[in-house]
Design a protein around this nucleic acid. Sequence first.
DNA 1: TCGTTATTGGACGGATCAGTCCGATACTCT
DNA 2: AGAGTATCGGACTGATCCGTCCAATAACGA
Lengths: 193, 193
Amino acid sequence: MGRPKEFDVEEALSSAMNVFWSQGFKAASLSDLTTSMEISKSSFYETFGSKHDLFLSTIDYYIRTATAQVSGAAHVDAPAHKIIRTLFERAVQRMVDPKSRRGCYLNNCAVEVSLYNELASKRFATGMSIMEEAFLKLVERGKREGAITMAHNSRALARYLVSSLNGILVMGKAQSDKESLYEVVNVTMDALK
Amino acid sequence: MGRPKEFDVEEALSSAMNVFWSQGFKAASLSDLTTSMEISKSSFYETFGSKHDLFLSTIDYYIRTATAQVSGAAHVDAPAHKIIRTLFERAVQRMVDPKSRRGCYLNNCAVEVSLYNELASKRFATGMSIMEEAFLKLVERGKREGAITMAHNSRALARYLVSSLNGILVMGKAQSDKESLYEVVNVTMDALK
DNA sequence: TCGTTATTGGACGGATCAGTCCGATACTCT
DNA sequence: AGAGTATCGGACTGATCCGTCCAATAACGA
């Protein structure tokens, strides 16, 4: 019944997210968005409601996809502390590559709009706590494996890791020198011992 | 000769910075700025050139004032590692207070405009390296005082501290719980031992 | 008093913006 | 063939934006 959608909503969301990620919410015009999403203005409003609605949807999309990666890594068959290190090293690699030096989408969104946008900042908090839970499981496993210190409780260490990861993503914007960032990772990881 | 300026340029810069800090560059309208700065549109363009010029000036202003605080703390007569902890605790206090939960101005600016603004991102890098130098001196002193580990070179530790401080400022936006943030500070500081 | 500079407020231009609406067309199922 | 939906492009609205310009006024020094 009726003509089917010609574009994939998830793909369009991904494109839109990349536009917001690169330009910010305010700076991204509707024209920028529809061009990148490869849909017409009419389809845009029909499917996504408004620029602001779309923005919130891209945050949900990011939480759905990006945090799934971190959570997924927790199930890899390797020592927990190695998985943690790998997650940090991947972050460094992303910040070193000019094409992906955009930091964390959630952080960027929080900076730009959380101040005047309740809905967006709630999503930011949600994303962070998902990250925290993922790290928490890894830390607990690391303790059982005897590779992580008992000097701090697991949740404190998990929060420390989320915080540190964000710090590295911020630093990467100013200091894209690979070795410097790896040094920071080394010090950060040593705190777990 | 001629009528003297009636407003203080530094004060106006401070007001403008607060507007940008709270709303972001794009979202801050000229009307918002002139209202907060308490000058007319004509005086605005006469003195500050353009919105963008003013923006860059506020970044310089921030670097001039805020990093001076950190650098100044280095000369306090107290054990270096205690000074470092105090700096972190002050950051936590700022993030816990709803009125000052705005993170680091440099970071916010970098997130919003660094992607399409060379001049702003250079300033961001400058600010970060000033912070790094301040922490470097503290770390070196802390080592001489025997309170900081020799396991890592001083510059790596200084970078680690800058990174961690930024991480805490980011986390504070999602997690404003005081105790959680203090826990992160504790773990962070333990890495120096 | 006179020249110089600072300040103001408002009018104005040119551009861009988000969002609405409509007519034409294309696709799919019954 | 016909009903139902998707898509498109473009015209349009109303608002907002940054920035320019100008005439009037106010404060200073000589």
